[in-house]
Simulated assay, not measured.
Amino acid sequence: MTAAILLALVPVFFVLGLGYAAGRLSIVENHHVDGFNKLVMSFSLPAALFVATASASRSEMAEQVPLFVILSVVMLVILFLWYALARIALKASKADAALQALTIAFPNLAGVGLPIVGSVVGASGTVPIAVALAAGSILVTPFALVMVELSADKCSPELSAITRVLSSFRRALTKPVVVAPFLGVACSLLEVPIDPVAKAALQLIGQAAAGVALFLTGLVLSAQPFRLDWRILGATAVADIARPLLALAIVALVPVSTETARLVILIAAVPSGFFGILFGISYRQDSAALGSMVAASTIVSIATLAIAIALLFP
């Protein structure tokens, strides 16, 4: 068990540290990272999400419906609760509150979840992780992006509030990272075959997603001072403790298989994700607090993930 945890976590921290060191030592520019960001969010990650979901059979995808629904509920509850807390108690702007909520609610499934689940349950863990990523990309991310879009106020001020909301939804739902998993799930359910050449091409660019995203996260963190205040501590507690406990409470009430229940809780225990940081870069938002949330959550997850694995997969 210790070897499995180390095998999953050490590469994650190595790539994060590599990006951090590259930025701190000025080997790679850490203030202008738009190129890296576009590579991950517009090309590599969408390709990986599409291939993972579209390659699953209809029966495999149907078996993941309970996992999709439960994790969607967990992430949306955390998203809305933290957004409300950040707006009311922390007096954060709409955009800042939305990106904080996205960071805490949407786990780092590509960088941490995939190797962890793969080490624990084997190759069969790829489909649940892809489905969880699809849930976060299709349902959770658009809600956060709509608030950021509205805050950015790209729409003409003469437009009505409803028109502005619809326009923001349209922009959010047309992001490649949202469209790709939606199309992949549709292809799986409709049993649309994927051309082997196209699949191989998409897999090649998709393989870079987790590594580049983690390197980029470390690179962004290297340009910011690490903050440790009550907000960061609260965000870490919500992501690493409250999120898996919420998943545990739901699976205790909903009749699902033991295997699904274990996977749901393990996936919910994965630390905060980097989507908030990457979208913060895209929208020119301050990502210093987001970086601290991701760093603190990832460090604490060494202990919380070890506990989760020991209890769920003894």
Rank of each mutant, 00 (worst) to 15 (best):
T174H: 06
A161S: 12
K175F: 01
R164W: 03
L139K: 03
V165G: 09
S167E: 14
V146N: 03
L145Y: 02
R170N: 12
L150Y: 08
V165I: 15
T163D: 15
D153A: 15
A180I: 06
T163W: 08
P142E: 07
L159K: 11
R164G: 00
L166D: 08
M147K: 10
D153C: 13
F169C: 15
L145I: 02
A152P: 11
S167C: 14
K154E: 14
V185Y: 03
T163K: 10
G184W: 08
V185F: 01
V146T: 03
R170S: 15
G184R: 05
V185C: 13
K154G: 15
A161H: 12
V178K: 04
V146E: 01
P142M: 01
A152T: 10
A161G: 04
V179G: 05
S160I: 07
L159D: 11
R170C: 08
C155D: 15
T163H: 10
A152E: 13
V140Q: 05
S151D: 15
T174L: 15
E149D: 09
A144C: 03
M147S: 09
V146W: 01
R171P: 01
R164S: 07
C155K: 10
R171N: 11
G184I: 08
L183E: 04
P176I: 07
V140A: 12
G184T: 05
L173M: 13
V146R: 00
K175L: 08
A180D: 07
V140Y: 06
F143E: 03
V148W: 01
L145D: 01
V179I: 13
T141H: 01
F182L: 15
F169E: 00
S156Y: 05
V140N: 09
V177F: 08
K154L: 14
I162G: 11
M147G: 00
V179C: 07
F169L: 15
L139Q: 01
L159P: 09
F169D: 02
P142N: 04
F182T: 14
A144F: 03
M147A: 12
R171S: 11
P181C: 04
S168W: 05
L183F: 09
P142F: 00
S151A: 13
L150F: 11
A180P: 03
V165H: 10
G184E: 06
A152F: 10
V146P: 05
S156M: 08
L139T: 02
R171W: 02
C155F: 13
V140I: 15
S167G: 13
A172G: 04
S167H: 11
F143S: 10
M147V: 09
P157Q: 11
A144R: 00
T174F: 12
L173P: 07
L150M: 12
